[in-house]
Simulated scan of single mutants.
Amino acid sequence: MNFNISKPNTALAEQLQHKIDLKTKPIGSLGILEKLALKIGCIQNTLSPELKQPTIMVFAADHGIALDGVSPYPQEVTWQMVANYVNGGAAINVFGRQNGINISIIDAGVNFDFEKNSGVINAKVDYGTKSYLNESAMTSEQFHTAIKRGADLCDQKHREGSNIIGFGEMGIGNTSSGAILLHILAGVDLKECVGRGTGWDDEGLKKKYEILKKAVTNYRGDNSVENILSYFGGFEIVMIVGAMLKAAELEMVIMVDGFIISSALLAASKINSNILEYCIFTHKSNENGHKHMLQHLKAEPILDLGMRLGEGTGVAVAYPIIESAVNFLNQMASFEDAGVSNSDQI
C-alpha cells in the first residue's frame, strides 16, 4: 500500500500549450485532443511524447456474492469467458487486434484451474472470494497479496517497455462490488449505484438491490479503504488497485475503462489522490452508477457510446483517439513550418 506517487511535472505545460496553439488550426479547434496532448506531455515531461507498447491487462476472478443471486448468470461464465479471451474470440480481443494493443489475461481468483500452457497468467489468490453478505470477502493477508501481485504484474509490463496501460475485468457479480464501493467511498445513495450488470430486468434489479442493501447493513467494519476493499471487493478489483497505483508510481499513462475499473480507481484515489493526474477516462459506461463515479472523480470521459461490456473494451475503442492526440502534437505543421498566416499576423 506504500506507493510513491508524485504529481506530473508541469514545468513544460506552458511550452506544450504554446506548441499546441501554434499548429495550423484555430486555437482550441481540436477540442479534447488538445487536452489529452497537454496531459500526456506533462506526464512524460516532454514536448514530444510517445506511446510505447499499449497494453490492457484483463484481471478475472469469482465472487462469492454471485452464489447469493446478484447476477442472472452462473459463476461458471467467468472461467468460460476467460477461455474465450485466450482463444481470441471476445470483444476485447477484436478491438485489441484492430488497434495494436497487447492484451494480457490474468487469473486473479477464478474458481477454475486453467492449463499451464493456456496463455492465462496465474496470479490466483484463491478460488473466488467468500460472500460478503455475512462475512468478509477476503482476509487481510489475501488483500495484501492481491495488491502486491497487481503491482508486480504492472511493473513487469513497464520493464518490458510499456508506458501506457489500461485495465479490464471479468467476474460474475463484480458490478455488485463496484456498486457498494461507490456507495461507501463516494457517499452515493445505494439505489443510484446498483445497475443491471449482466442484464437484469426490473424485478432482478430490485432483488440485487435488496441483497446488497442487506450486505451493507450487516457490515461492522470501519471506513478504511483497506477494510472496505477486503470486505466487499473481488480479487480482480484489488489486484487492479495495486496495478493502477504502481502504474502511477512508474509515471505511466493510465487509461480508465468503465464502472468496475472506475470503482478500483475510486479506491486507489482514496489511498493516493495523485493517481488521478495520470488517468485518461476513456468512456462513460451505460452501467447506472458510472455517471456518479465520473462526477465524484471530476472526470471528463472521451466517449459515450452506451457501452457496458467491461473487459477493457472502452479503453481499446478509445485508444486510437489518444494516439491521435499524440500524433497531431508531434506531426502536425506549425503556422511557421507551413508558411501559413496565423491570426496574430492578420
Rank of each mutant, 00 (worst) to 15 (best):
F259S: 09
Y85I: 09
S334K: 06
I101N: 03
N274A: 11
N4T: 12
I40A: 03
V315A: 08
K19N: 12
H283E: 08
F335D: 11
E34M: 06
D202W: 00
N134I: 09
I27D: 01
I228C: 05
S285V: 04
S131R: 04
T175A: 05
A123N: 11
V94F: 11
A83G: 10
T145W: 04
N111S: 15
G31M: 03
H283A: 10
S230N: 14
P74C: 00
N288T: 15
V241K: 07
R149L: 14
L245V: 01
Q331W: 10
F232V: 03
I43Q: 07
I228R: 02
G173R: 01
A13W: 02
S131K: 04
A91F: 10
G168S: 02
L153Q: 09
V120Q: 09
G109D: 06
V120R: 08
E135H: 04
E169N: 13
S29T: 05
A186R: 11
M239G: 15
K208I: 05
H290Y: 04
N330W: 11
G339P: 12
A90G: 08
H158E: 12
K284V: 06
E50Y: 08
I280P: 08
N327E: 13
A264V: 07
L12T: 03
N102E: 15
Y85V: 07
H63L: 13
I27N: 04
K298T: 10
K39D: 09
N288E: 15
A83K: 15
N342C: 14
N87R: 15
L190H: 05
E236G: 06
I321P: 10
S263G: 11
V241A: 07
F328R: 01
Y209M: 02
I322S: 08
S343I: 13
G310Q: 12
E251I: 00
L266V: 05
D222T: 01
K7V: 10
G204F: 08
I56W: 10
Q53R: 15
I32R: 04
A60I: 05
Q75I: 13
I105G: 08
G178P: 09
D113W: 03
L33E: 02
F3N: 06
E249H: 03
N327Y: 12
Y132M: 13
E160Q: 15
P320F: 07
G88C: 13
N4A: 11
E236P: 10
K284D: 04
F328Q: 06
S176G: 13
S343H: 12
N288G: 10
V125K: 02
I228A: 01
A90L: 08
P49N: 00
H183N: 14
V58P: 07
D257L: 04
S341A: 14
L51V: 07
V58D: 06
S230Q: 15
I147F: 00
I165R: 10
V82M: 14
A60V: 02
T282Y: 08
K157Y: 14
L182P: 13
E34L: 07
L182W: 09
V225D: 01
T24E: 03
R159F: 04
M239T: 14
Y319V: 00
F114Y: 13
Y73A: 13
G41M: 02
I101T: 03
N174W: 12
M252Q: 12
K116A: 15
Y278E: 01
S285Q: 04
I260C: 03
A333E: 13
V225E: 00
Y278V: 02
N102Q: 14
